[in-house]
């Protein structure tokens, strides 16, 4: 019964993430890719995304702190973040990245800094939800030790 409760909790969480526009159908693609040969596929990919995203955001802050911002460089990091978020279907982060790149092209440091804050918030929000999701999945798996 505990497992069922956890599962419905997980479903609710994921549905909510979709509803809020955090995720798009790429995430469903990931779920479809998960199979018996790769039972932890989604969690592995999500973990990769979280680590990589965090790295890129740190790099972005560092780049934008510099007295002479190399906007091309910033742009390429934002591009990376955009690609990375697209991989897991992190729709909101991805869309913010698109805005971010516009500011890069405008060479607007303020715009970039503002968008960086926004993307950071969104990213960590998403990451928290992902972590909650992975935790629930682990708990569910723990209910079926042989599954």
């Amino acid at each position: 019964m505990a497992a069922a409760a956890l599962t419905s909790q997980l479903n609710a969480l994921v549905n909510n993430m979709f509803a809020m526009g955090l995720l798009d159908d790429q995430f469903q693609q990931l779920q479809m890719l998960q199979d018996s040969t790769a039972p932890d596929f989604v969690s592995e990919v999500v973990t990769l995304f979280c680590d990589d995203g965090e790295r890129i955001i740190c790099e972005l802050s560092r780049q934008l702190e510099k007295p002479n911002v190399d906007f091309d460089r910033v742009d390429s990091y934002v591009h990376q973040l955009k690609g990375s978020s697209a991989s897991v279907g992190a729709q909101k982060v991805k869309n913010t990245c698109i805005q971010f790149r516009e500011f890069c092209q405008q060479r607007s440091r303020d715009g970039c800094l503002k968008t960086l804050d926004l993307v950071r918030t969104e990213f960590y929000d998403l990451r928290n939800k992902f972590q909650a999701m992975l935790q629930l999945e682990q708990q569910i798996q723990a209910c079926y030790p042989k599954h």
Binding site: E44, V45, D52, Q80, V88
Partner: peptide
């Protein structure tokens, strides 16, 4: 992008 590498690898293996 390590995330994409993982996903593409999985897809291609499928």
């Amino acid at each position: 992008d390590p995330t994409w590498l993982k996903i593409l690898e999985k897809m291609l293996r499928k």
